[in-house]
């Protein structure tokens, strides 16, 4: 879109989280639309292509620099990641690399370096695309998503965040402040597996984030999440239940495949087919279980 055609969006850069919440509350009360802007990697494409609903024009609020949304903190067995921390910052953060290696590994497969420098987990969660790689990676940890508004702070379990395609339970006056990962035991098994036309830039056909604690041939805690196999990030509840209820040695490829097939509901689209995605979802889950010692 040429500059001449660019709609005259209003733009605000509040200095604090409180100021941002007050602004959102006021807009919401008047039923006026607001767009929260962090890294802009999705939003700016929509603006440039004229795909953003512009009648009425939303207020664009820059939250990328808010201190309250920045930084990574380890708090006992919980890792707290600010919603506006970039993928590049996660990639280079020694705490993330040590305690949440799956998250650090995932960042390498998001776009290319210039996208990693701008994109954020908060943005990925708010956009709530089922193809969001960042969501699949953190969802393996069963995180809590912290949202804030003038009404206070609310903690949303990952399983209760997404309600449908690009839809979440976050209210219009709430913004995502942080992601809290309840960490598995240090040294727990993990895997990140993205399948796309290429690793850089490509949007996933299937992407698996997985963590597991294994002891005495049995899986205690397991977290599995797959992107691009349904309207929301798939958390594979039936597969998790099977794996924790069955000694690894007793798992078979057939039983695993059957529950994975029940857990995913992909579609045919421009990037892949339903058939390929179901096949690949089974394959990546079995690949992880093989690493844990299952004969699948």
């Amino acid at each position: 879109m040429s500059l001449v055609d660019l709609p005259r969006y209003e733009f605000a850069r509040p200095a604090t989280l409180d100021e941002t919440c007050a602004m959102l509350a006021e807009r919401e009360a008047k039923r006026e639309k607001t767009v929260l802007l962090a890294g802009g990697t999705d939003f700016m494409v929509q603006v440039s292509q004229g795909k953003l609903a512009s009648d009425p024009l939303p207020l664009v609020v820059d939250i990328g620099r808010l201190d309250e949304l920045r930084g990574v903190r380890l708090d006992g067995s919980r890792l707290r990641i600010g919603a506006a921390v970039t993928y590049l910052e996660l990639q280079r953060d020694p705490i993330v690399r040590e305690y949440a290696p799956l998250v650090a590994q995932m960042t390498h497969d998001i776009g290319g370096p210039t996208i990693q420098a701008r994109g954020t987990l908060g943005g990925n969660l708010a956009t709530a695309s089922p193809a969001g790689d960042g969501i699949a990676a953190i969802a393996a940890y069963d995180p809590i998503i912290e949202v804030q508004s003038v009404r206070g702070r609310r903690r949303i379990p990952m399983a209760e965040l997404q309600t449908g395609y690009k839809a979440t339970t976050r209210a219009g006056d709430e913004l995502i402040v942080a992601i809290e990962l309840p960490l598995p035991a240090h040294g727990a098994a993990w895997c990140w597996r993205k399948v796309g036309t290429r690793l850089a830039q490509a949007i996933s056909k299937v992407a698996l984030g997985a963590v597991a604690e294994v002891s005495g041939g049995k899986v205690g805690r397991i977290g599995l999440a797959i992107a691009s196999v349904g309207p929301t990030t798939s958390l594979l509840p039936r597969t998790r239940a099977l794996v924790t209820a069955t000694p690894l040695a007793n798992l078979t490829a057939a039983t695993v495949d059957a529950v994975v097939a029940e857990d995913v509901s992909p579609i045919d689209d421009v990037r892949s087919t339903r058939e390929y995605r179901v096949h690949t979802a089974k394959a990546v889950v079995r690949g992880f279980l093989r690493e844990l010692g299952a004969p699948v």
């Binding site: 733009f11 990697t41 700016m44 420098a117 701008r118």
Partner: peptide
């Protein structure tokens, strides 16, 4: 480079 980090200038609004 934006503040020392390479970014795509087509995805950065001047307002930021």
């Amino acid at each position: 480079f934006l503040d020392g980090v390479p970014v795509n200038a087509c995805l950065v609004p001047i307002g930021q």
